[in-house]
């Protein structure tokens, strides 16, 4: 074994594979086919737009998302405050823009954690087979035995209300569907001649998994992850709405809806505006996911999304 392989594989492993995948696919799939797919264009465009707003928005708004201005409480939409102000006189549009940072960052990080955990477990189960497979798949069954939100709610609640704990809860509950998909794909390719040949050459198992198995599962994982981003935005907003996520005065969309419900009649924009923001984000991810699925995964794999989390 050369020195190169003695390096911690996590550091260079996935990234080199991802780089290879991007090199191979950006030229063919994404650029040529992907961008001609209208769903990918629309969903991707919407997601990019929201990401840009999340990054630059705070620079453009003159207001502070948390500073109270009690002389400007509950003002309706106006030129100075396009989406009105809340019960503490804070500009709703400014808080939405800062909220986009929270929601997008949370969704991306939680999805990344799910992907890493689920893919690792799926690879191990599919490649090693036998007892390891049986044990890991029972673990998957156990995770899928809980309705997603119920388990996430309890984990976040027991750990104590905070954004960090919502992130932990969302990562703990969603990895199982990745494990299933990855395992299925590994089972489908692991006896194909190119893997067989690598094995006969004496390639170490870790390298086979990384170089030969991982690339073949990337497409379905990318599709699943994109769809998942939308679900996570919804679930995270729901948990924050229940009071388990971001704590006031942090600007977060679910928390904003919870704070606005007492003013439903007098200041309906407090509930409507964050809801529209959540919906646009989820639409972006869902449409992008649909489009990517058509492009990357033409068989659609009939993954029946048991108990969406």
């Amino acid at each position: 074994m050369s020195e190169r392989h003695a390096r911690p594989s996590n550091a260079d492993g996935p990234s080199s594979t991802v780089r290879a995948w991007v090199r191979e696919h950006t030229s063919s799939t994404l650029a040529r086919v992907g961008w001609t797919n209208s769903s990918v264009r629309f969903g991707g465009g919407l997601v990019c737009l929201l990401a840009i707003i999340a990054v630059v928005g705070p620079v453009l708004t003159p207001y502070d998302p948390t500073a109270q201005a009690l002389d400007a409480r509950l003002q309706g939409p106006s030129l100075a405050h396009p989406l009105g102000t809340d019960a503490l006189g804070r500009d709703v549009a400014t808080r939405l823009v800062y909220g986009a940072r929270v929601s997008l960052a949370l969704a991306v990080v939680a999805t990344a954690l799910r992907v890493v955990v689920g893919t690792t477990i799926g690879l191990l189960a599919g490649y090693l087979g036998g007892l390891v497979d049986a044990a890991l798949m029972r673990l998957v069954d156990i995770q899928l035995a809980f309705p997603g939100l119920v388990l996430a709610l309890v984990i976040a609640g027991v750990l104590g209300p905070s954004l960090r704990n919502v992130l932990i809860a969302l990562s703990v509950v969603g990895w199982a569907s990745y494990a299933r998909v990855v395992r299925g794909n590994v089972l489908a390719v692991k006896d194909r001649p190119f893997v067989e040949a690598a094995r006969l050459y004496g390639t170490p198992g870790r390298r086979i998994a990384r170089r030969h198995l991982l690339p073949s599962v990337l497409n379905p994982v990318v599709v699943l992850a994109t769809m998942n981003l939308g679900t996570i935005v919804l679930t995270a907003a729901g948990l924050s709405f229940l009071g388990l996520g971001a704590q006031p005065p942090t600007p977060e969309w679910g928390t904003m809806i919870a704070g606005g419900r007492d003013y439903l009649r007098s200041a309906p924009w407090l509930v409507t505006a964050p809801g529209v923001a959540i919906m646009l984000t989820v639409i972006g991810f869902n449409v992008l996911g649909d489009g990517l699925r058509d492009v990357l995964d033409p068989d659609h794999l009939e993954e029946r999304d048991r108990g969406r989390s």
Binding site: L234, I257, M279, I283, V287
Partner: peptide, 22 residues
């Protein structure tokens, strides 16, 4: 249907309360 799956249900609930109940 796309709007339906992308909508937070607690939000829809408040919209309905506002519109139908209030």
């Amino acid at each position: 249907a796309l709007l339906g799956v992308s909508m937070p249900n607690f939000w829809l609930g408040y919209l309905l309360i506002l519109l139908v109940a209030l």
